[in-house]
């Protein structure tokens, strides 16, 4: 916070002197990215918006439709169910993920053995695995005929849950995503914890604070910006859920229909049903939903000092 404000003050001072030069050089630095940004973000978004205003059918071809596609999308059970699913999934997933990664980060901050360092790396490792492959591995592990989960339950004489069935797929996916990302979030939190000045703990201890008080009053409080950051990442990631269900669909087509998540639905519309107009509508509507969700969240947490201040 302080560093950046002094920076800004300094730049303001210099501005008067070398305005034109600053302009030119600043744009030279930002320009290349700006071009990519325009070409690969702004342009596709505008194009999607344009496409979403047209309608394409087998018999009639392409016709102008105005906002009909949007009216259709927000009345389309496939799209709405998909949106509802990803929202529900986020609401369950994100707290679980955050609690797990926070707990691990706190443990690792506490324990400094060689084994702890080893664990830190191992827990992080799934992040390096392509989601496609993570989903594939778990798909196998869920097998009731030859997977280890079935063995564990079998040892107690119980039938294991079928995590690929319609009723359980929610939990099956929950586990895959948690496995993949908890380590990454843990590392962010851990790094933040390591950055906290240890004299704070000493001072608190002298004041008679218990270990739990230190954890809650100091550590977690100071972690708030990092937690907000994670939350935003997780929210963006989950709302656009695609890779994991798309891969696991090959093992559980009954439980994961083509309109399972909004992104899968958009994919189906674009590639299977050749309806790029409606697909754009869904992409655009999804983008809007994500943007609004995140923006509302950012506003709500603004006072707490979030990472974009």
């Amino acid at each position: 916070m302080t560093a950046s404000t002094t920076g800004a003050v300094q730049t303001r001072k210099r501005r008067r002197r070398t305005n034109a030069r600053q302009n030119l050089i600043g744009w030279l630095f930002v320009g290349p990215f700006g071009i990519v940004f325009l070409a690969l973000l702004v342009l596709p978004i505008c194009y999607a918006l344009y496409l979403s205003l047209y309608q394409k059918t087998l018999m009639a071809g392409t016709t102008f439709a105005g906002f009909d596609n949007y009216l259709k999308a927000f009345d389309d059970p496939s799209f709405l169910k998909g949106v509802w699913f990803v929202i529900r999934f986020s609401l369950v997933l994100i707290p679980i993920q955050m609690i797990i990664s926070l707990a691990i980060a706190l443990i690792l901050d506490e324990v400094t053995s060689r084994f702890a360092r080893f664990s830190r790396l191992m827990i992080f490792l799934p992040y390096a695995i392509p989601t496609v492959i993570g989903a594939l591995m778990w798909g196998f592990l869920y097998s009731r005929n030859f997977g280890p989960i079935a063995d564990v339950f079998g040892a107690f004489g119980a039938a294991g849950p079928d995590l690929l069935s319609t009723n359980m797929i929610f939990y099956g996916l929950l586990n895959v995503v948690t496995w993949q990302w908890a380590g990454y979030y843990m590392i962010i939190l851990y790094a933040a914890l390591q950055g906290i000045d240890p004299t704070l703990y000493e001072a608190a201890r002298i004041d008679g604070a218990s270990r739990w008080q230190i954890i809650f009053r100091i550590k977690i409080r100071l972690l708030t910006p990092a937690l907000v950051l994670i939350l935003v990442f997780a929210l963006i990631g989950t709302l656009q859920f695609f890779n994991e269900p798309k891969i696991i669909q090959q093992l559980a087509a009954g439980a994961i229909p083509d309109d399972f998540t909004p992104n899968m639905y958009a994919y189906q519309q674009a590639f299977t049903l050749a309806n790029s107009n409606y697909s754009s509508t869904i992409s655009f509507a999804l983008g809007a939903v994500v943007f609004i969700c995140v923006y509302v969240f950012m506003l709500a947490t603004r006072k707490r000092g979030n990472f974009m201040s």
């Binding site: 342009l43 999607a48 790029s276 697909s279 999804l286 994500v290 995140v294």
Partner: peptide, 15 residues
């Protein structure tokens, strides 16, 4: 930063 990257894939593809 908040625009979902995958939501861009299909528009980019069509483009």
């Amino acid at each position: 930063v908040m625009v979902p990257a995958t939501a861009l894939v299909i528009p980019t593809f069509i483009l």
